[in-house]
Design a binder for these strands. Sequence first.
DNA 1: TGCATATAGTGCAGTCTATGCAAGTTAGTT
DNA 2: AACTAACTTGCATAGACTGCACTATATGCA
Lengths: 198, 198
Amino acid sequence: MSEKSLRARRRVQTRSEIHDAAVELVLERGFNEVTVDEIAEAAGVSPRTFFNYFPTKQEAIFPGPPELDAETIEQFVTGAGSLLADLRDLISNYAELAPKVRHQMVELRPIFAQQPEIWIHLHKRFGDLEQQLAQAIAQRRHRTDPTSDDYVIAAVSTSVMRSALRCWARLEKADSPTALADLIDRNFAALKLLAAEE
Amino acid sequence: MSEKSLRARRRVQTRSEIHDAAVELVLERGFNEVTVDEIAEAAGVSPRTFFNYFPTKQEAIFPGPPELDAETIEQFVTGAGSLLADLRDLISNYAELAPKVRHQMVELRPIFAQQPEIWIHLHKRFGDLEQQLAQAIAQRRHRTDPTSDDYVIAAVSTSVMRSALRCWARLEKADSPTALADLIDRNFAALKLLAAEE
DNA sequence: TGCATATAGTGCAGTCTATGCAAGTTAGTT
DNA sequence: AACTAACTTGCATAGACTGCACTATATGCA
């Protein structure tokens, strides 16, 4: 049947309850003004159980990992356009289309807008993404391991994305489905302009 | 006299003793395998005093902040070259010439090389630098506040530097005084190439 | 159905970073 | 010598996180 075991469902639901409670409380009061005990209580589990589901407080709020999916990578690796254009498309797709990523961002947008310090907690996540991207760039160039050049390009690309996200979080009307992709395009254009300038 | 008060000297020395003890222990065992109590003990002060000198454990190891100095900024803001070239020079100067920055990096290089996870602790620092750089870029363009374009360029520039630093930390013979500057040049060249490509 | 086992939840004790407070110590001042 | 300000320290506490041991319940299998 389509039903997984009772246990599996419970597990998913409890996880979600903890996450929801965490997001709600952090939205109300801010990351540092909410304790794990409070989140656990709001979710109806013991504090110890909280850590059974999430290794850290921040993971309960920013669950992950929003990795690049295999399909997107494949498309990029075999891409025929200019590297820069294909990178732009890759980043756009990732940020805008991946349902998990998009949902998470929309849900957390108010947090980013209200509490800019929160970005600190995401740097590790972006680091993982950067590593994965470097790998993809190397592959596209028919290498097995990324060279330092590949790493630079990966780092720059994630920077561009991070920058666009920060900007997007501050937007008034971010409902427009293409708002984020537009920002990413703009940022890549700015990058191109920078390098082209005499 | 050139001698400051006994107290002032003591303060500087104690700070340095704590820092040295911290670096030594972390080099031996790794960041997470060293406790504040141990550092304090090795430095000959009480654990409470440790926090009198440094607000967090990581600040004792990566003291700061390595801000851009006013002179370097001034030079950049009034620079006449292309934006990209002047950014490259700015970053090069910062990383290679600022004595404080350079000393700190040389001292901590083994830590970066041995324990790559440590980069996580530096992201906040790089964020500050990015903000400062965005401000400088805006100024150079005769604006009072950075636009989103300025932020992107600042983000990209610090990315390039971070990438170069990571590479430099892994080098065998980083004694060469220009090694780091060379890496930064290379990375900027890679960036230019990326954007120029058809 | 009934038993064995795996898994989820929980309490408890403990570690580590960090902070506030208050009492003591020592350097600089008059 | 007496006073003040800076520095040190111990003590108590909060909060994130871990290991361990125990219970309850779900699930698989005879």
